[in-house]
Design a protein around this nucleic acid. Structure first.
Lengths: 197, 197
DNA sequence: CTTGTAGCATGATGACTATAATATTATATG
DNA sequence: CATATAATATTATAGTCATCATGCTACAAG
C-alpha cells in the first residue's frame, strides 16, 4: 500500500458524514454528488471509486445516520435504570434542541415522508433503524414490568416521531413548543414516569 | 372572452389534481413540470400562464391536497355524534387502505419529512392543514366532555401521523399491520372509545 | 363565415446532474 | 532519493430540468 491503510476508509467516513448532514438539511433526493464531495473537501472525481452508484451511496448514508443519532443517546443512557433511561430519552427526543438540530438527530422524522419512496435498500435500512429503536424502548418498558411492553413501545415511538415531525413543520415557535410539550406530558403520564423526576 | 369563462379554471384544477397525485407518489422535489402537465393531458408550454413559478405551484398543490384528503373524510363524518366520528376517523386514518393509498390520503404523513425543508409558502399551508385537523379532533373531544381536549388532540394527531409514517416505511406486511393495530388500540382506549363499537 | 384572442403547443436556452475516462498528485516502500 | 500505485482532480458526455419566446389553434362574438 502506498497510502496509509486507513486513508480511504477515513475519507469515506468523512463523505458519509457530510452526506448525512446534507440529507437532514435537504432531503435524500436533493442530494448532489458534487456538492457532498465538495463539503468533504474533495471534488466529485473520486466518488465512484468509493461508491458503486448514487443510490447505493444514499442507502449507506442512511445507515450511517442511524449510527450517530438516537442510538448514541441510548448508549449514554444504557447504564441508567430503566425509568431514568426512558425519561431522559423522551426528554431528549421531544426537546427543542432535538427539534432544531440539523445534524445528529434521529433519522426517523427526517426521512419520514421519504422512506416509502426510497429505493429498496434505503428503505430497509430505515425500517431496520425503526425496529431497533422500538426494541430498545420495549426492553426498558419490560424491565419496568409493564405488561404489553412491545405494543406500548410501538405506539410510543409513533407519537415521538409524529410529534417531532409536526413540531418541525409548525413555524410559530410557541405552537411548535406546545406540540412537543403536550406529547412529552402525555407520554410520561402514560408510561408512569412522572414520579421519576 | 373567446373561451368559456371556466375553461382555464378547469384545466388549472386538473393540473393541480395531478400534481397532488405526483407529490404523494414521488415527493415534492422530484416533481417535474413537464411530467405533471403531461399527466394532465397537456404539454409544458402553458404552465407559466397558470402558475408564477414552480415553487408557487408546489405551494398551491399542497394546499389543494388538504382539500381532498382527510377533510373530506371528516365531512362525511360531520353529522355523526362525536364518539362515532372519532372512532371512524381513527379507523380510517390507521387503516391499511389509508396506509396503502397513493392518492387521496392525508397529506401530513406524505410530506412529513419534507415540510421543514419546503419553501415558506408551502410550509405554511402544511402547518395550517395540521392545525385545522387538530382543531377538528379537539372539538369532538370537547363535545365528549374530555377536560384537556386540545392537549389530547395534539398528542393524538402526533401518534396518528407517526404510526402511518412508520407503517409505510415498514416493508414487512405483518409488522406494518401491527404498527397500525397497536396505535389504533391504544388511541381508542385512551380516548374512551372502546364501548362505542 | 370571418376574425380577434385566450389557451396551449413547439422549440430553444442555459443551468445543473450523474457518470465515466483520463490525468495528476501524494506517499509508503525499496 | 526513486518509483509504483493508491487517492483524488480535471475534463468530457449525455441527460434532465425550469423557464421563456414565439407560433398555432380552437372558440365565442360579430
Amino acid at each position: 500500500m502506498r497510502y496509509d491503510g486507513e486513508h480511504k476508509q477515513k475519507t469515506r467516513l468523512r463523505v458519509l458524514d457530510e452526506a448525512a448532514r446534507a440529507i437532514r438539511e435537504e432531503g435524500p433526493h436533493r442530494l448532489g454528488v458534487a456538492a457532498v464531495m465538495a463539503r468533504a473537501g474533495l471534488t466529485h472525481g473520486g466518488f465512484y471509486s468509493h461508491f458503486a452508484s448514487k443510490e447505493a451511496f444514499i442507502a449507506e448514508a442512511i445507515a450511517h445516520m442511524f449510527e450517530g443519532g438516537p442510538i448514541t443517546t441510548l448508549k449514554t443512557v444504557r447504564d441508567l435504570p430503566p425509568r431514568e433511561a426512558l425519561t431522559q430519552f423522551i426528554d431528549f427526543y421531544l426537546s427543542r434542541r432535538h427539534r432544531d438540530s440539523r445534524n445528529g438527530g434521529c433519522p426517523l422524522p427526517y426521512l419520514a415522508g421519504d422512506a416509502p419512496r426510497l429505493a429498496e435498500a434505503s428503505r430497509e435500512r430505515y425500517a431496520q433503524g425503526a425496529a431497533n429503536l422500538t426494541k430498545v424502548v420495549a426492553d426498558r418498558l419490560a424491565e419496568l414490568g409493564r405488561p404489553y411492553a412491545e405494543e406500548e413501545a410501538s405506539s410510543t415511538l409513533a407519537e415521538l416521531v409524529g410529534a417531532v415531525t409536526l413540531a418541525r413543520a409548525e413555524a410559530d415557535p410557541d405552537r411548535s413548543d406546545a406540540i412537543l410539550e403536550r406529547s412529552r406530558a402525555h407520554l410520561k403520564r402514560r408510561l408512569g414516569l412522572e414520579a421519576a423526576q
